[in-house]
Design a binder for these strands. Sequence first.
RNA 1: GGAGAGAUACCGAAGCGGCUAAACGGGGCAGACUGUAAAUCUGCUGGCUUGCGCCUACGGAGGUUCGAAUCCUCCUCUCUCCA
Length: 408
Amino acid sequence: MGDARIQVEVERQLAVMREGAVDFYGESELARRLFTRIKEGRPLRVKLGADPSSPDLHLGHSVVLMKLRRFLELGHTPIFLIGDFTARIGDPSGRNKARPALTAEQVAQNARTYVDQVARLIDVSKIELRFNGEWMDAMKSTDFVRLCSQGTVARMLEREDFAKRHAGEVPIFVHEFLYPFVQAYDSVVLEADVELGGTDQTFNLLMGREIQKAYGQEPQAVITHPLLVGLDGKDKMSKSLGNSIGLLDDPANMYGKVMSLPDAAMATWTRLLSSGQWGELVDAMERFARGDGEPMVLKHDLAYCVVERLHGSTNADEARDHFRRVVQRKEQPKEIPLVELASGEKRLLEVLVDAGLAPSRAEARRLVEQGAVTLDGARAMDGGMMIVLGEHVLQVGKRRFARVRISG
RNA sequence: GGAGAGAUACCGAAGCGGCUAAACGGGGCAGACUGUAAAUCUGCUGGCUUGCGCCUACGGAGGUUCGAAUCCUCCUCUCUCCA
C-alpha cells in the first residue's frame, strides 16, 4: 500500500474513532502511530476496562463496548480488561462516598458473568481478555510505592469528586487515591495504544498517559464518550441508582424499560447507542427533534432496536407483541408461569405470597387494599377470601401475573 | 497525641424522656388518567395477625427510669481544628 493510500485509510479510521466521542486526547500522535502500524501491518492495542463491582453490565457500558467492537472491525486488537484487582479497591470516580469493599469471591463471580455479557456485543474469541490481578497481585510494595510517587495529593484533590467529598466532610480513604495509579499502570502492562471510556473516567484515563510516559512508553490516545442517561432521564445510568437496563435483562423487560424512557431522552439514546447502525431510526429521531413524528411510535422502534441487538430479532418481535398486548391493551400475556401449590384451599393473601407475587403478607394486604389484585379477571378486595381448588390466574399491578394451580 | 462534632429506616434528613414504626424529601409499589412501564395527580411504603394485639428497629454493649432514638457509662467508626 502506498503512503498516500495509507494516509487515506488513516483518515477513514480516525473518523470512525471520533464518532460519538466527546474528547480524543492525543489524536495527532495516534494518527502518526496508526500510519506506521498500517504500514507494518501491526494492529493497535485498544483497551477498555471494567471493574466487576456489580454482577451486571448495563446499556451504558454498551456505548463503549460497541466502540471497542468498531476497533475490531477496523482490524485492531481489542483488549477487554476485567479489573478484578481494582474492583477490590473501588473506583472513586463520580462517587460521593467510598465504594463498599468486595470480597475476592464476589469479584470472581461477577467477572465470570462479565464475559457472557460482553459476548452479547462482541465476538469474545477475537479479543484479548485480561485481568489486572494477573500483575497487580504479584506487584511488590516497593514497586507499588514507586508507581504512586508519580502523582501528588494536590492533583488528586483537584478532582471534582474528591474535592466535593473533602469539602463536604465525607471520608476519603487513602486506598481510593491508589485507584487511578493501578488503572494507569494497566495501560503500561498492556502496552495500550488507545484507551476507551466514559467521560467520568477522564482523570483515570489521562493518568494512564502520564504513567506510560513515566515508564518510558509512548502515551496512549484517550477517547472519551458521553455517559448514557438512565431511565429516569436525569442521572447517568447506574445499577445502584436503579435506572439501568442490564445487558442480560430478559427481552420483555428490556423492551418495557426502554418504553419507560422519558420522551426527551429518546434522541440522545438513539444517538449514543446507534454506533453506526440504526440509520433509519437516527434519521427519524432527527425529524422528531424538529417536531415531526409520533413519540410513542419512535420509542417502540428504539425499544425494538435495543432488544434486537442483545437478543436477536425473534425475541425482539415477541417483546414488542408482549408490550402491545399486556401494557397497551391491558390483556393477559400469552404465557404465564404456572405455580403449583399442593397445600389445599387457602386465603388470597397466602396465595399471593406463595405464588411470589408479594414478598410478605403485610405487603400482599396493602396491594389488595389498593385494588391492585385481580383474581380470574375480577378485582379482589378481600384478602381473607378463600381460594378454591383448581387453577386461577392472579394479576398484581399492571404486569405481574401468575397462574396458580391449587391442589389438595 | 489533644480539643470539639457526629453515627436515625433503601438513600438523604428531622426528632433530643411518653402523643414515634419514627416528620419531610428522594426512591420503590399501587390507583386514576394517558400516547407508553412518559408526564401529572392521589394513596401506600418493617414483620406476624381476620381482629384486639404482639414482635423487631434509631452504630455496638451495658445502665438510669413506670417508660429511652432521646439521659448516663464504656466501646467501634467518621468528620473538623490543633500537634
